[in-house]
Write a protein that binds this DNA or RNA. Structure first.
Lengths: 343, 343
DNA sequence: TTGAAAGCGCTAACAC
DNA sequence: GTGTTAGCGCTTTCAA
């Protein structure tokens, strides 16, 4: 039933030329190999006629290139990653690459296992958000010489390509924005993690608070907690700090949990407090009050990642690309002038 | 620099056995082929020692099986699809399959192009949300004999595997719930599409409304509009129907757009109207008022899809799996008893 | 200018 | 029980 797909051999046989000639022509090396125009046209024409499509498996086996790019994130169902995936996908398919995606759940063992699988698959390139302790695995990958790009965070000690945003400056500016709008007792909710991006965000907050001679009030949630535990911690933190007048969530899921806590336990604060989140989100526009956020430039991150990837794939001598992009502060109602808000 | 990966041949050479023996043993056919326990252990031991991993490309070229499953949805950045992707992913990797995902943008040409690419890649199985006019492409795929499962919607005229939910009954029940809670003038916002799931949702709404001897008020947005056009249409619809006391959005992104419109142009209605959405969402819990929704059983859909896929992959004689799952009504504040609400 | 042939790593029919 | 060998479909060196 399954129609036998024509192979290069069939073409050669039909046209009374050798497979070599066909292969050369099909790979655009006809002119280079000085194959006669007549033969070239004959082959191209027939290939089109029978709708010839090369067997990519065979091609890959031979060349060692699979044209598959892995996109590994913490959790593909996180809207931030999902939207990025979408952007990467579009560019990759345009350029003839396929994307395999996967979630490492921020777990080192899982990261290692997945990378093992992909190595077996001879994956062509990697775009990775590394889990906290994945330095060794990443290093091993680098040593194989395959293109690897980290993003969102990176290992300063490792000479890798990466695309990140200026987390420190972004939180610094956003915190200053809150201060500028009259907030003085700003809580910062983050997770206890040594990952560069979280460290930098905390740094930015502390810098702004210190400059304004305010006291920093940080809640560091234990790493790896589930949502309900996090919510419980936040509830206690808000309770223990009744004088807070603003809160800054260091990631979008922390904001999500925090908003829920506020809604359920401190409904009054929802409109009284200044609220700021890292990572923007469609729903922050819809929420009442609408939530101000540090918006990562998703399009830019995605296209930069692919631009670098394509460059690494093309050029034998691999340059080092380390890109820091600027985030944008999306001001909304939740961070409006304090006095105006509390009216 | 790149360490040469040991091949089956290396093992054979090192152990003074033939590649056949090695191949059999490694594929667990040792006992079947009555290869001596001693040789089996020797091969297994050495393979483990040098950390042998088969070249999957060669394996695939030979067997024609790639162990790659395609997961094609409208838009992977839609949270509904992203969460489903996550569920599929976990199961697939556990079973030794890889998942390639892609978005067809609900566009037939795009669907066709993607399928072409995957056919070239010798993809092992397909899980697809078909775009509206993709019947022909799906049919072609079926004829190749590869496992195909549709979900979310399907083509009744095509004998395919599918996993869907009982859209009609779900909207019927949800509409009855609104009616039961005192709402009488319920608008239904949907898109003009012939896709089974949208047709069924509208049907369910109409049935409930008719049974209650109420008038149906439907806004059918033109297919393929962008968000801002949709919002404009909704604004006009709400304006033209000032007596509405509830609104039912037929998809999560329509709800998203609608909530924004209400927030910006009819803030009073946000608390006065009954609101219901199809497809649940984390943010519906956080929203004020929290939004009631018809929740699709994501876990169940995902595991059912993979269960069917694994069955199709395993069994030569392929059974037909047509599964209809039940959605769950998630009642929240936005659909509370009308009189209670308007207090 | 074109063709023959080796071989990528693996499977499996067939031979011994 | 184990080995020989012919491919899977393609690229590429070498020879003509």
């Amino acid at each position: 039933m399954k129609p036998i797909r024509p192979s290069i051999k069939d073409i050669a046989a039909h046209l009374n030329v050798s497979v070599t000639t066909v292969s050369f022509v099909l790979n655009g090396k006809g002119p280079e190999m000085r194959i006669s125009e007549e033969v070239i046209q004959k082959i191209l024409g027939y290939a089109r006629e029978i709708n010839y499509r090369p067997n990519q498996l065979a091609q890959s086996l031979r060349t060692g290139k699979t044209n598959v790019i892995v996109f590994m994130v913490e959790d593909i169902s996180n809207p931030f990653f999902a939207r990025l995936a979408r952007i990467i996908e579009v560019i990759a398919y345009q350029k003839g690459y396929k994307v395999i995606f996967c979630s490492n759940e921020n777990d080192d063992r899982h990261t290692g296992e997945l990378l093992q699988v992909f190595r077996d698959q001879q994956v062509t390139g990697y775009i990775i958000i590394p889990s906290a302790g994945a330095k060794k695995q990443i290093k091993a990958l680098l040593q194989e010489g395959v293109p690897v790009i980290l993003f969102d965070r990176y290992f300063p000690e490792l000479e890798t390509n990466y695309v990140v945003i200026d987390n420190e400056n972004a939180t610094y500016q956003a915190t200053k924005h809150l201060i500028g709008n009259g907030y003085r007792k700003i809580g910062f909710v983050t997770i206890a993690a040594s990952q560069t991006q979280m460290v930098d965000r905390l740094k930015g907050y502390k810098k702004a608070v210190k400059e304004a001679k305010l006291r920093s009030r940080v809640l560091e949630l234990p790493f790896g907690e589930d949502a309900s535990e996090g919510e419980e911690h936040m509830r206690k933190f808000f309770e223990a700090n009744p004088d807070l007048d603003a809160v800054f969530f260091a990631t979008n899921y922390l904001a999500q949990q925090g908003l829920l806590v506020m809604r359920e336990h401190f409904p009054g604060k929802l409109h009284a407090w200044g609220i700021m989140s890292f990572d923007d989100n469609e729903f922050f526009r819809i929420h009442t009050p609408s939530i101000s956020a540090v918006a990562q430039p998703l399009e830019e991150i995605g296209s930069k990642l692919m631009e670098i990837m394509l460059d690494l794939l093309k050029n034998e001598k691999k340059a080092l690309h380390q890109v820091v992009l600027t985030a944008r502060l999306q001001e909304r109602d939740s961070s409006q002038q304090k006095d105006v808000k509390s009216l």
